[in-house]
């Protein structure tokens, strides 16, 4: 079991295997994404009941919360591949880490804007320097910092390692985001959905749409990330014989 996993890991570390494997996986992820997204939007907008306090405005939750979760999820993945890149100098891990940054930034941006659009009618303000909002904004800056640092260094591999290091340092922001609503109880509400501890404070009729939308964003990220990494592989391995053979066909 361990040996198989290890071999798998090593094979995926080869740009050629990664390119082929991801090329075969992308169509399946894409189909899964289309199905869950269509179903999720239908559930979010038409099936989920109206909230007794927030009316229809609460439906923003179904794009806001999955995006926020993706912002954190992608950051963890970026830091983990960054760590692998730093420790084992694995080319594919460098590319994965760097490809994560703009997608994570996009999801974090969606989180901030949809949060603002939800906050205006419910809290009466577009923005407040609340702990959750501030740490989420800092997450966006971390993503932009990783992208900027990568762009600023000429050598692609050195740039990737520098950016990976910054990504690792930024991990300290993740627990701050997560616990911000507990440590500083100001404006943003606490966690409603708890996967690992205690009961979720959300009715199943409302939770269903959220879970489907969350699955859709995971599949979407899979497609976006794998295809981004494939583009990077082609660009950085353009002199490799297997890439040259691709161009021959």
């Amino acid at each position: 079991m361990w040996k198989t996993l290890k071999r798998w890991f090593h094979q995926l570390g080869s740009p050629r295997t990664f390119y082929r494997f991801s090329g075969a996986l992308i169509p399946w992820l894409f189909v899964a994404m289309v199905i869950t997204l269509a179903w999720g939007l239908y559930q979010s907008l038409l099936v989920a009941p109206t909230d007794y306090q927030q009316g229809e405005s609460y439906r923003i939750l179904y794009v806001h919360v999955p995006s926020a979760w993706m912002g954190l999820f992608i950051y963890v993945l970026m830091a983990v591949s960054g760590l692998i890149a730093l420790v084992w100098r694995m080319k594919v891990a460098e590319m994965v880490a760097i490809a994560c940054a703009p997608i994570g930034a996009a999801y974090t941006f969606v989180t901030l804007v949809t949060g603002s659009l939800w906050g205006k009618p419910m809290w009466g303000t577009w923005w407040e320097w609340d702990a959750r909002l501030t740490s989420e904004l800092f997450l966006l800056f971390l993503y932009l910092g990783v992208m900027g640092l990568y762009a600023a260094i000429e050598d692609r591999r050195k740039a990737a390692r520098a950016a990976a290091l910054l990504a690792l340092v930024g991990v300290v922001n993740l627990p701050i985001i997560h616990y911000s609503v507990v440590w500083w109880n100001t404006l943003h509400q606490g966690a409603t959905v708890k996967l690992f501890s205690g009961e979720s404070h959300m009715h199943p009729s409302m939770l269903k749409a959220l879970l489907i939308m969350t699955a859709a964003t995971k599949f979407h990220f899979g497609v976006a990330l794998l295809q981004s990494v494939r583009a990077r592989i082609l660009q950085q391995e353009s002199k490799a014989s297997w890439v040259q053979e691709l161009v021959d066909d």
Binding site: L37, L41, L45, T50, G55, E56, S57, R59, I60, V63, H64, S67, I103, A106, Y107, F109, V110, V113, T114, L117, W118, K120, P121, T217, H220, A224
Partner: peptide, 21 residues
């Protein structure tokens, strides 16, 4: 329910980012 101005731009931005990526 009167929140069209907030709900639709949220979904539009989300979908725009999904399609872009």
């Amino acid at each position: 329910g009167g929140y069209a101005l907030y709900v639709w731009p949220s979904y539009a931005l989300f979908l725009a980012v999904v399609v872009y990526w």
